[in-house]
Structures are given as C-alpha cells and as structure tokens.
C-alpha cells in the first residue's frame, strides 16, 4: 500500500483525493497518449477545457471524455483562454451543466496573451460571482500573498499560485512568496504553472504546498508517459520530505555521522 493513498489525502472542498498531483489534458499527441500519461501520473483530478463543439465533424470522432471518463476521474473544467470575468463565469456555468452539476472548477482569467499572466482584478470579480453561485473554486493566481489571502476570504476552496509563467517550464522563481502564501493560508495551496521537471515539483512540495498542477511539463516532455511517472514520484517524495521535516542547513558540521570514538588509530588528528 502506498502510504499516502489512504493516510495523507489531499482534501479540497471537503472531498479527499488520493493524489497530490493534478494534471492537464492539453498538448498531447492524441487521446491514447493523454490517457497513458494520466494513468502514469496517478492523478485523480484532471483538468479539461470547455470549447465550442466542431459542427459538421464526423459524429463518430472520439472525444476526450471517452478516454478520461468522468466516473474514474474528477474532471476540473478550467477557464483557460478567458480574459474577463464574464467569459470565465459563462464558461464555468456551461461546464457545470456539461458535467452534470459538478461544482469543482479551476478559475483562471488571463491578462495578456503573450505572457499568460493572470488578471487578478478580473479573477477576483469572477471568483466572487462563482462562489455566490455555489461553485467550489480552485483559483489560479499570481504569487502575491495579499491577493491569495483575498481569494481565500472570498471563499475559494484552493489557491493556486504560479511557480513561473504558464508553459514556461522555468520552475519555482519565488519560493519566498510561496512560503508566505502557504503560511497564511487555511485552504490548500497548489502550485499551478511553471513546473518544468520533477525536481521543481519536489521543491514545491518540500516548501509545504498541498499539491501541484501541471500540464506542459508532462505533455511537452520527449516521453510524456515517463515524465508523468517521474512527476508522481517527485510529488510523493517532496510531500514525504516536507512531512519528515528536513535537517537544518549548516555551512559545515562538527558532528560527523560515524562515531568519533573507537577508531583503530585513536585521535584522528595527528601531529608530526
């Protein structure tokens, strides 16, 4: 039995999930690869985007949900591509209907198509509306501790600061801000965006994040399925290291790990 699958679940909005790694479903070669990567990641919460259906396409064309069935995964519809509160709210109302009344959603309102930086003014406005309408909002945010706290106060069930910009793979650029956000938060804090490789995910978890959400780091790897497996291990390892409590950093140690006595040559430091 893997220890955290039952003993250390991630609880969001009152529901426990067996994995602290959340993954996206975009940018894969095909649905088969999407499915294989998600299986390898062990993720229980999987993000999806909501888009206009292609009218006139082959009616037998497979759809994402054939591969990622809603009865096996908790689907987390997002508002990727929305640049104002109104579009984000409309998108999630459609998502709720699409997924049979499902309330857990990922809100992200972007501010700039080049950098994909979030627009926090619009995000706060959308979050306020969505919480009033009964949504359980996991919210993508800049790594500003004051904004993160405001989002929590509005009633968001998780705050998800960026590690670095969406799709950049630059890793955790400001661990100090993340630490302050984690210290202040009473809801789960998940790093969302910017993770590039397994060590980034492990560092996020060692900092005390409750989880990590990623898409490109897995989908854009040369071998996405292998990277998904690496990410699962990194998140688990980082979490265990956080729970274990790391040793303090010291410039050097006067206390070696092996006994100082009983050496075959007593008193190691000889003179002459």
């Amino acid at each position: 039995m893997k220890p955290h699958e039952n003993l250390d679940p991630l609880t969001i909005g009152g529901k426990a999930y067996a994995s602290r790694l959340l993954v996206g479903t975009g940018k894969y070669k095909d649905f088969a690869e999407t499915k294989a990567a998600i299986e390898a990641s062990g993720a229980r919460i999987v993000t999806v985007a909501i888009r206009r259906t292609n009218i006139g396409q082959n009616p037998n064309e497979p759809s994402l949900l054939d591969y990622i069935p809603p009865n096996r995964f908790t689907l987390l519809p997002n508002t990727a591509g929305c640049y104002n509160a109104e579009d984000a709210v409309r998108t999630l109302r459609l998502a709720r209907e699409l997924l049979d009344g499902h309330e857990l959603v990922k809100l992200e309102v972007l501010g700039d198509p080049r950098t994909l930086f979030p627009n926090m003014v619009e995000t706060i406005s959308a979050a306020t509306t969505l919480v009033k309408e009964g949504f359980k909002v996991m919210v993508y945010t800049s790594d500003d501790p004051i904004i993160a706290k405001q989002l929590e106060d509005i009633g968001c069930v998780a705050v998800m600061p960026l590690a670095s910009l969406i799709g950049s793979g630059m890793g955790i650029l400001n661990p100090w801000n993340l630490q302050i956000i984690i210290e202040n938060a009473k809801v789960p804090v998940l790093v969302d965006a910017g993770v590039g490789t397994a060590s980034d995910a492990a560092i996020a978890m060692e900092l005390g994040c409750d989880g990590v959400l990623m898409n490109t780091a897995i989908a854009a790897a040369k071998n996405p399925v292998l990277m998904a497996s690496a990410m699962r291990k990194a998140v688990e390892a980082g979490r265990e290291a956080f729970l274990a409590g790391r040793m303090p950093k010291k410039l050097y140690s006067a206390a070696p790990s092996s006994p100082a006595t009983g050496l075959i040559t007593p008193s190691g430091a000889k003179t002459g």
Binding site: G24, T25, G26, K27, Y28, T34, T47, V48, A49, I50, R51, R52, T53, I55, S63, L64, L65, L75, P77, N78, A80, R90, T91, L94, A95, E97, L98, L99, I166, L213, M214, N215, T216
Partner: peptide, 26 residues
C-alpha cells in the same frame, strides 16, 4: 439550457446559441 429541457426549449428566430464540449486543456 439544462439538458433535461432540451426537448422542451423551442428555438426562435434570432437566437444565439453556444454549444460546448470538454476538450484537452490545462
């Protein structure tokens, strides 16, 4: 439009509809 109301919702001239599905995304 709730799915249960699809058969009962008569569409009118000039209506604006959005029909969406779930697709891959992060």
């Amino acid at each position: 439009v709730p799915r249960s109301q699809f058969p009962g919702q008569a569409l009118l001239d000039g209506d604006r509809l959005e029909i969406v599905v779930a697709v891959g995304g992060g």
